[in-house]
Amino acid sequence: MIRHLVLFKLNEGVTRDDPRVAAGVAAFEALGGAIPELRSWECAWNISDRPIAYDYAINCTVDDTEALQRYLDHPAHQAGVGQWREFATWVIADYVV
């Protein structure tokens, strides 16, 4: 099994109440039920206010590297990524669990 972690940082001047952010969050919240490769799905706002903290996180699992690639290529995932690209940057980690 592979865990896929993504940490998002809103761009300078962008806040959680920005309509683009709300739409991006809604798009990611819907992925859990839309992509069959996902074995687990969590996404939420970070509650930490430390200076090095990121703003939003995705934590999910898939069976293997092929399933991960299908998830990454899925149109619903690509649509969500396209929305987030407008107002945030992110880092990822994929590892075997």
Rank of each mutant, 00 (worst) to 15 (best):
Y56C: 10
N46P: 08
G13L: 05
Q83F: 04
V21Y: 12
P36G: 13
H74F: 07
W41V: 01
M1F: 04
K9E: 12
I58Y: 00
F28K: 03
W45V: 06
E66S: 12
W45I: 00
D49N: 13
A93D: 01
A88R: 13
F28W: 11
A79Q: 15
L38K: 10
W90V: 03
C60E: 00
E42I: 02
W45H: 03
L38M: 04
A23C: 05
G32C: 02
V96I: 07
Q69H: 07
R50H: 04
E42Y: 11
R3H: 12
V21T: 11
V14Y: 09
A27R: 10
I35R: 07
E12G: 03
T65I: 05
G32V: 05
L31P: 09
Q78Y: 03
P75I: 05
E86M: 04
V91T: 14
A44L: 01
A93L: 12
V62Y: 02
C60S: 15
P51L: 07
V96M: 09
C43L: 00
L5S: 12
F8W: 12
D94I: 06
T61P: 02
D94N: 14
R85D: 10
A88H: 04
D49A: 11
A57N: 08
A26Y: 00
L68Y: 13
R39V: 10
W90T: 06
T15E: 12
E29T: 12
R85F: 08
Y56D: 03
V62M: 05
F8G: 08
Y95K: 04
W45L: 03
R70P: 11
A53K: 07
S40F: 01
A57T: 08
T89F: 01
G33P: 14
C43Y: 00
L68A: 11
L10T: 02
I58H: 00
L72D: 10
D64W: 06
I35K: 08
I47D: 11
R3D: 13
A53Q: 06
D49L: 13
V25R: 10
Y95D: 00
N46C: 06
K9P: 05
I52C: 09
G80N: 07
I35Q: 06
R20T: 14
N46H: 06
R70T: 09
Y54G: 08
I52P: 02
T89E: 12
P19S: 13
P19M: 14
C43S: 02
S48R: 03
D63E: 15
T15A: 12
L31Q: 04
G80H: 05
D17Q: 15
A76S: 13
P75Y: 08
A67T: 00
A44F: 01
R70I: 05
P75A: 12
L72K: 15
A67G: 10
E37C: 06
G32K: 02
P19R: 11
I2R: 06
T15D: 06
A27T: 10
R20E: 15
F87I: 11
Y95C: 05
C43P: 02
H77M: 03
W84F: 14
I47C: 10
T61Q: 06
Q83L: 15
A67W: 02
D73P: 02
D49V: 10
I35F: 08
A93C: 12
D94E: 09
D17A: 15
L5K: 04
R16F: 11
Y95F: 15
D73A: 13
P51M: 01
L31S: 09
S48G: 09
Y54M: 14
N11K: 15
E37Q: 15
R85H: 09
C43E: 00
A23G: 06
F28G: 00
D63L: 15
T65G: 08
